[in-house]
Design a protein around this nucleic acid. Structure first.
Lengths: 193, 193
DNA sequence: TGGAAATGTCAACGGGTGTTGGCCTACGGT
DNA sequence: ACCGTAGGCCAACACCCGTTGACATTTCCA
């Protein structure tokens, strides 16, 4: 036993672990939880399926490791209040363009209860915390965070999963221009009527 | 042969067909395409799995029949231009509260290419047509329709699939009050900058 | 009333899945 | 130089799936 928190002495199998994880993310993102088979993932990683079990226990464990995701929200208190929407949508777009983990999570959350729970936690905890940080009425923060989630996840769903042609075609900056006012409204506005 | 377009002389098996379809919609909506097994659907409908094959060919055929869905968009030209957003979001909410077909389609579109294609057609054709009907600049209609789809599908996804607590908790009218301006902006507004 | 067509049941098939345990190999500390 | 052990492969098990074809039953027209 080295220390209570291991200083990550590199194991010889770390390369294999990483290969498995990369292949798993690819497959989960492209095909969803049920269609992505352990056998296919193992083949992509050029190892035996039993290795996956050894290192990640079972398929759920593998997914849990592969779908680790952090929104990495910036500190919103440092942003001019009038630019919150723009900063947020731009952050989201750059955050998950080129990282397919979100796609994997999204695809799987549709059918897998565990992934849905994780998705809920992601947005409930991280987003709500970020929204609460710049002090609107605490009674409305949860709802504001939910609305922001609905618009951003809707964009992710239509752009990366369903691939609605106009949503795929739009340049990130155009998307920002359209969506920023929406998020701004959800964050700092009041409902109509 | 009766006529080229059959006047729907009721067959004795129509009850069975309907039972299968109802069970299929329930299962597809609750579990998605891959987890919903023909065996389980047949058990729900209290018939033999082979009946499903006889009446719908195969699993894809069954899904195609069960996921028949129409947005039933109202004629937007008859709506005061300032209330377009409100009318639209209210229509969507009432349209699919209590009809789980959309949930089935949504869950399945995440993993099944055919369902994704159907989803694309649904919003590309029907929504775009409705948006085009009241004549904004034709060059932007597709994008406007896409943005409306992103917000409405985002609401459906967070409220009915992932079940984000704040999105589930909100009353329909509160949702309308928040989202109507967003859709209004996408339909008749201009992008910032 | 006869018999063809429609409706339904039963048992099985071929294939793919997650998962397991045994065995071989090659590294690395002593 | 040795040998424990971590890393890796192979074959198999048990299960569940979609799908099929043969057979029983009911319906209904001529």
């Amino acid at each position: 036993m080295t220390a209570t928190t291991e200083p990550a002495r590199p194991r010889r199998s770390d390369a294999t672990r990483a290969a498995i994880l990369r292949a798993a993310r690819d497959r989960f993102a492209a095909e969803g939880y049920e269609r992505a088979t352990i056998r296919a993932i193992a083949a992509d990683a050029r190892i035996d399926p039993s290795m996956v079990m050894r290192y990640y226990g079972n398929k759920e464990g593998l997914f849990a490791a592969a779908a680790e995701f952090d929104l990495r929200l910036p500190d919103l208190t440092a942003v001019p209040p009038g630019q919150l929407g723009e900063v947020l949508i731009r952050h989201f777009l750059t955050r998950w363009e080129g990282d397919e983990t979100l796609a994997a999570l999204l695809r799987t959350a549709s059918t897998n209860p565990g992934a849905a729970e994780r998705m809920r936690a992601l947005f409930t905890d991280q987003l709500t915390a970020a929204v609460a940080a710049f002090g609107t009425d605490p009674a409305t923060t949860a709802r504001r965070a939910g609305l922001v989630a609905s618009q951003t996840l809707g964009i992710a769903f239509t752009r990366y999963i369903v691939k609605l042609p106009p949503m795929v075609a739009m340049a990130p900056e155009e998307l920002v221009a359209w969506v920023a006012p929406t998020l701004q409204h959800y964050l700092t506005g009041l409902p109509e009527k």
